[in-house]
């Protein structure tokens, strides 16, 4: 069966991650390593993003130039913290992988957005 690629966008509460101690952060790294090993056959790419406080936004200023500003595109409590690109047969398979992702912080604060790629 033809395969399709999906982007798994991990949104979580950045403040919780920033406030976490090294043990908690290491535990998350270990969990992601285990997840990556478990799904190595379907993972195409993945990255862990630096905090939104390091983000810079570039826009067209409408006068032929650009406007460069500090900060993320959207100011929200939950922010994009990392992503995986996976290649699987269909949405159900993608959702099954997404359900295995390790989450950080309290239940309900973190979520994965599953987006099909062209």
């Amino acid at each position: 069966m033809a395969m399709a690629r999906y982007l798994l966008l991990i949104h979580d509460r950045e403040a919780d991650y920033e406030a976490a101690d090294d043990t908690a952060r290491r535990a998350l790294d270990v969990a992601h390593d285990a997840f990556s090993r478990e799904h190595k056959d379907v993972i195409v790419a993945s990255e862990h993003l630096k905090p939104t406080s390091t983000a810079t936004v570039v826009r067209e200023d409408g006068a032929g130039g650009h406007l460069v500003t500090d900060g993320p595109y959207a100011e929200t409590k939950e922010a994009l913290g990392g992503y995986y690109i996976i290649e699987v047969s269909d949405l159900d398979a993608a959702l099954a992988v997404a359900k295995r992702l390790p989450f950080f912080g309290r239940t309900g604060d973190a979520a994965v957005e599953v987006r099909p790629l062209f």
Binding site: A4, S89, D90, L91, D92, A96, V114, P116
Partner: peptide, 14 residues
């Protein structure tokens, strides 16, 4: 079609 929701009876797990 775009998200590829399969035309299938789900696995017993789901």
């Amino acid at each position: 079609t775009a998200a590829r929701i399969p035309y299938r009876i789900p696995d017993s797990e789901d």
